[in-house]
């Protein structure tokens, strides 16, 4: 079986926290613990005069890519609930193609 990963388009992530909360619920994590954590840059006007305001959720060591969900064909809880639909789960080789199609995106290998 090929290795799985998480693809995130950070141009479209608007920081809704659904990934954090879905993960917390799925793994029954106490408040303050995260399997994926939102990071933020901005709002900041950069030296060129453009506004920077970017979010990237970063999987933590608690992330197991929702193995028990994906075994039944479901999506990881974060991908399922992502409000901006900027997250994808799948084979890393397949997701790598999305990196080429969608600028401002990242691929997490866990």
């Amino acid at each position: 079986m090929s290795k799985k990963g998480l693809f995130i388009n950070y141009e479209m992530c608007f920081g809704c926290h659904s990934c954090e909360m879905a993960c917390s619920q799925e793994h029954k994590l106490p408040a303050g613990e995260f399997g994926i954590k939102l990071t933020q840059y901005g709002p900041h006007k950069n030296v060129k005069g453009d506004w920077e305001y970017t979010f990237v959720p970063v999987p933590t060591q608690l992330c197991d890519l929702c193995g028990s969900r994906t075994a039944t064909g479901k999506l990881p809880a974060c991908v399922h609930h992502c409000e901006s639909e900027c997250m994808e789960y799948g084979d890393i080789a397949e997701l790598a193609k999305l990196l080429e199609e969608q600028p401002k995106s990242v691929l997490f290998s866990l």
Binding site: C16, S18, A22, Q25, H81, E83, E85
Partner: peptide
């Protein structure tokens, strides 16, 4: 899709 409030 679902918001953080309904996920809690």
């Amino acid at each position: 899709r679902l918001c953080a409030r309904c996920l809690n």
